[in-house]
């Protein structure tokens, strides 16, 4: 996995002894994850999952803020638990991060500083973005630049956004010590250099670590099945699977887009129990699609690699980029990503 392109965390202060214990591997947090793994029969991921559903907490959604999260491409990261992060200090963090960014920019840019400095940092919570009451609240960080053209009616522009969340993740992380906040999934939109810079500040301030979250072909096929299974009143996109063929001298991409109603019909005929999806069903769904394809082109898709899945619910790429399109299933999508993030953190 690619780690975030930031300098290794080198604490300026002494690492608290308790924290050291925590990362030596014998912590309750680790032991608990071990036990969770043993319970799941499929090694890395569970054999069956619930169909994504709307969370009861979704009533707390602020529609405008949620709309802001949709239709944007987010790069996924995992985040280890943050030490001594407090929701009551968000204002303070805003100004600390702002001065950190300003100081870093000053190092790199000797000229035109004033123009560059015309920005603000806002930390805010995202109410309702959680699966259960025990999930810690999600929060959003935005970097907003003010245009310098005229100070009176200055246009504000969001140049970078990142948000931290944990959806149905608390049961796995319940043994984490009190001083830690577990928000294993981090999503960023904006210049990568900004993500790196802000990541550095978080790493230094909360003693946590960011790592890029990539999505395996195996998990992409789960997404294809789970998102096809969702009941939508109207579809905005086809169910599209993108396969990459590793042939020489150049690669070949095969996009296989299925009419969303037909994809749903196929899913309904493959699917058995109303509330859950099994590994067998996911495999059968993908096999059926491959077999229909083979009938026309005599190409065996199973020998190629699934790299991208997009549906009306969301789209995901194997390199860890995601776009969520449907607010109704936002929580369902985040729950699966949280699960993948927790497995990767270990």
């Amino acid at each position: 996995m690619d780690s975030l392109d930031v300098p290794e965390f080198t604490p300026k202060h002494r690492v608290p002894p308790r924290l050291r214990d925590y990362f030596t591997g014998a912590s309750p947090f680790h032991r608990h994850l071990e036990s969770v793994r043993k319970q799941t029969s499929f090694g890395q991921t569970p054999f069956r999952r619930k169909i994504p559903e709307c969370s009861p907490l979704q009533e707390n959604f602020d529609p405008q803020r949620i709309a802001f999260l949709l239709h944007k491409q987010w790069t996924l990261y995992t985040l280890t638990p943050m030490y001594k992060f407090s929701y009551t200090n968000l204002k303070e963090y805003s100004s600390l991060l702002k001065s950190f960014i300003a100081a870093e920019k000053q190092k790199g840019l000797a000229v035109e500083m004033e123009e560059d400095f015309n920005f603000k940092v806002i930390f805010s919570t995202l109410s309702g973005v959680k699966g259960t009451q025990r999930d810690p609240a999600a929060f959003l960080v935005q970097i907003i630049s003010k245009s310098q053209l005229s100070s009176k009616n200055a246009e504000e522009k969001v140049v970078w956004t990142g948000w931290f969340c944990c959806v149905y993740g608390d049961s796995l992380l319940e043994n984490v010590p009190d001083d830690f906040t577990c928000l294993p999934l981090f999503l960023a939109n904006g210049a990568e250099s900004n993500t790196a810079l802000i990541g550095t500040w978080f790493q230094q301030t909360f003693d946590c670590r960011f790592t890029r979250l990539t999505i395996s072909a195996f998990n992409l096929s789960w997404m294809a099945a789970m998102w096809t299974a969702c009941n939508l009143e109207h579809y905005v996109a086809a169910t599209e699977l993108l396969w990459s063929v590793p042939c020489s001298p150049q690669s070949l991409d095969i996009s296989y887009a299925i009419h969303p109603e037909d994809a749903k019909a196929l899913w309904d005929s493959v699917h058995q129990a109303p509330e859950e999806i099994t590994q067998e069903e996911v495999d059968l769904f993908i096999d059926c699609l491959c077999s229909h394809f083979h009938r026309h082109f005599k190409i065996n898709l199973a020998a190629t690699r699934l790299v991208c899945v997009s549906t009306s619910v969301a789209s995901a790429h194997t390199d860890g980029k995601i776009k969520i399109l449907c607010s109704k299933y936002l929580i369902g999508v985040l729950a699966f990503l949280t699960e993948l993030a927790i497995f990767q953190i270990e």
Binding site: V245, Q250, I254, I258, H259
Partner: peptide, 26 residues
């Protein structure tokens, strides 16, 4: 069963030709 399939490659014909020898196509 309605589908739209799209093949794309910087060397499309070459890439398609290499599928059978690679065991990916019949």
């Amino acid at each position: 069963f309605r589908c739209l399939v799209k093949f794309s490659s910087p060397h499309l014909l070459e890439a398609l030709k290499s599928l059978a020898p690679a065991g990916i196509a019949d």
